[in-house]
């Protein structure tokens, strides 16, 4: 009897987990399907590779795609290197104790700050104080602050997951701390660090508030020429079309079309990071370097 009750419970639990999984997948499909339904008709080669026309009631969204691409790539560059360095310091070098705990807590809290606050900070510091103006540089610096906590805490967790015995093995051979970090610890943590970067890419591509005052414009006649140019960006473009458009009939489908493009842009950038991660993983598992 007891066995039966146990297997029944097991069955119920399994059923529940499966139901939740199916429900989640369903929601995801629903969103994608909805977007495709509403926006697929505007998608075309010209939509992706042409400039907007007729005060954005026709034409393409190429400048917004390019703008988002620039912002994402630059914000990853600005956040990945300091983020990884910060995590290495905290986990490998920094003194353990209440100071380290406090820093860690602050970093985690930072990721909970609403992104509009970062937007205002970017406006005050990068746009005004440092005089970068409304530009790719200001926008990507602001975005990099938004994703920095994610990169620091995920990298730190990756470093923590590497067994102490690896550090000991290396140090016992007469390696310095840095040699150990560079040759033994970082290669093992790379897949997890890349995962953190993938999450950062998704975040940077989708955020609107941080670039609202720092980088994005509703319309620009030409493509950005330097990091000091202001840019159009997909999330802001969608927002502007829906809220401020003068011809909703033709502009709302464009907004849906832009959403699909944004979704695929994030998927493409993430896939390339996933590809690098897989390549690294298999190389490491098989022969290693």
């Amino acid at each position: 009897m007891k066995m039966q009750a146990k297997s029944l419970r097991q069955y119920a639990a399994f059923l529940m987990v499966r139901a939740v999984f199916l429900f989640t997948s369903f929601i995801l499909l629903l969103i994608t399907g909805f977007l495709l339904l509403k926006g697929a008709k505007v998608l075309s080669f010209d939509f992706i590779f042409k400039m907007p026309e007729n005060s954005m009631t026709a034409g393409g969204i190429f400048p917004a795609i390019l703008g988002t691409f620039y912002l994402v790539v630059m914000s990853i560059i600005f956040s990945a290197i300091p983020g990884i360095a910060c995590a290495i310091y905290l986990n490998e070098y920094g003194p353990k104790g209440w100071i380290s705990t406090m820093i860690r807590t602050s970093i985690n809290n930072l990721s909970g700050v609403p992104s509009i606050v970062f937007g205002l900070f970017g406006l005050a510091v990068f746009v005004k104080k440092l005089g970068f103006g409304v530009s790719i540089l200001s926008g990507s610096l602001t975005l990099s602050i938004v994703i920095l906590p994610v990169i620091i805490s995920s990298t730190r967790e990756a470093l923590m997951a590497i067994p102490q015995s690896m550090r000991e093995a290396s140090m016992a051979l007469g390696a310095t701390k840095w040699e150990t970090v560079w040759n033994i610890i970082l290669p093992q943590a790379t897949p997890s660090i890349l995962t953190a970067i993938i999450i950062g890419i998704g975040r940077a591509a989708g955020e609107t508030a941080p670039i609202l005052f720092t980088a994005a414009v509703f319309y620009s006649k030409e493509l950005p020429r330097s990091i000091f140019s202001e840019v159009m960006a997909l999330p802001y473009h969608i927002y502007a079309l829906v809220t401020e458009g003068t011809a909703p009939q033709s502009q709302i489908p464009i907004a849906y079309g832009a959403s699909i493009v944004l979704l695929f842009l994030v998927i493409i950038i993430s896939l390339s990071a996933i590809y690098i991660r897989q390549k690294h993983r298999s190389a490491y598992a098989k022969i290693g370097h």
Binding site: P163, S165, M166, E168, A169, S170, L173, G174, A175, T176, E179, N183, I184, Q188, Y284, A285, I287, G288, H289
Partner: peptide
């Protein structure tokens, strides 16, 4: 506690850092 590297690299690493 071998490193997750090749058998050869496990030994070569120690030599290189030295």
């Amino acid at each position: 506690n071998p490193f997750p590297k090749s058998i050869f690299e496990n030994i070569a690493y120690g030599l290189r850092i030295n």
